[in-house]
Design a protein around this nucleic acid. Structure first.
Length: 267
DNA sequence: GGGTGATGCTGAG
DNA sequence: TCAGCCTCACCCC
């Protein structure tokens, strides 16, 4: 159940483990049998991430495109991996490393033009901030063309790629922006602040391997409870960490959104 | 051991 | 707008 920082972590991990190696691929579940046979025995050139999408480039084959969706999960093993479960969609082995993929919403081989089409419909990725196409200017121009609430716009992957439901609530809170503000009515400084907050949050998540947005928060390892380490996400029936006002919750863009009506006043 | 919600997205209507 | 996908971890017996 990953947001963009997790996808980029996977890209780094999988590149470390398998890039430059000849990879053995299987599909125990069978749904990707033909694709696995196609890449089996080929050298992995590189792994790229954009937003929540992963692309694995193989020598003399199409690229492998993976999107984890809500359920998808990777597991990596250095040595002596457990046998893959029957539901494992794809196994990748090389140089003593093993990677299992289960439950992805997309696992397919794509020609270069199809990969480009996927990238073309994605917005800028905060984890690539400053590179071509991944700038606050592109983000701003995407927002300027939309009248939907900003709380819906930041979940739209064609507006900004990699932000999911946790970062939506947390980034809008830290930026002090009401989720109900129309996307095209944000001021230049609000847009700049929101982009900067997303960059910082995703980079911290990438570095630490988990989402902690509250400054100097001590979060215990293991499963998260009651929005620990977060300002508003899933903090139902709790008070705002900043102003002690109530944390509000509602559905927006088919997902649950949390915010503080005091710290994020209507624009 | 069953029920359920979850960090997502697509496509039918 | 909303059902469907399809897996896992957590909660409550």
């Amino acid at each position: 159940m990953p947001e963009g920082h997790v996808i980029h972590r996977y890209a780094l991990d999988h590149r470390d483990r398998l890039a430059g190696r000849v990879v053995r691929a299987t599909s125990p579940q069978g749904r990707f049998g033909a694709g696995a046979r196609r890449i089996d025995g080929r050298k992995l050139i590189d792994v790229d991430a954009h937003g929540k999408h992963l692309f694995y480039r193989f020598e003399r084959a199409e690229a492998l495109h993976v999107h984890l969706g809500l359920y998808g999960k990777f597991r990596s093993f250095d040595a002596k991996p457990p046998p893959p479960t029957p539901a494992t969609r794809l196994t990748l082995l090389g140089g003593g490393n093993t990677i299992y993929l289960a439950g992805p919403s997309v696992c397919e081989l794509v020609e270069p033009w199809a990969e480009q089409a996927i990238l073309d419909r994605l917005g800028p990725d905060p984890l690539k901030s400053g590179t071509e196409g991944n700038t606050v200017e592109v983000f701003a121009s995407n927002l300027a063309r939309r009248r939907i609430p900003i709380g819906a716009a930041v979940l739209d992957q064609s507006v900004i790629a990699g932000v999911g439901n946790i970062f939506r609530s947390e980034a809008l809170f830290v930026a002090g922006i009401s989720p109900h503000t129309p996307a095209n009515s944000l001021t230049d400084s609000e847009v700049a602040e929101l982009w900067a907050v997303c960059v910082t949050m995703l980079e911290k998540g990438l570095a630490e391997g988990r989402i902690v947005t509250v400054a100097r928060s001590r979060v215990r390892p293991g499963p998260r409870r009651n929005g620990a380490g977060l300002y508003v996400y899933q903090r139902d029936q709790q008070i705002c960490r900043r102003c002690n006002g109530p944390v509000s919750r509602e559905e927006m863009a088919n997902r649950t959104l949390w915010w503080c009506g005091v710290c994020q006043p209507p624009g």
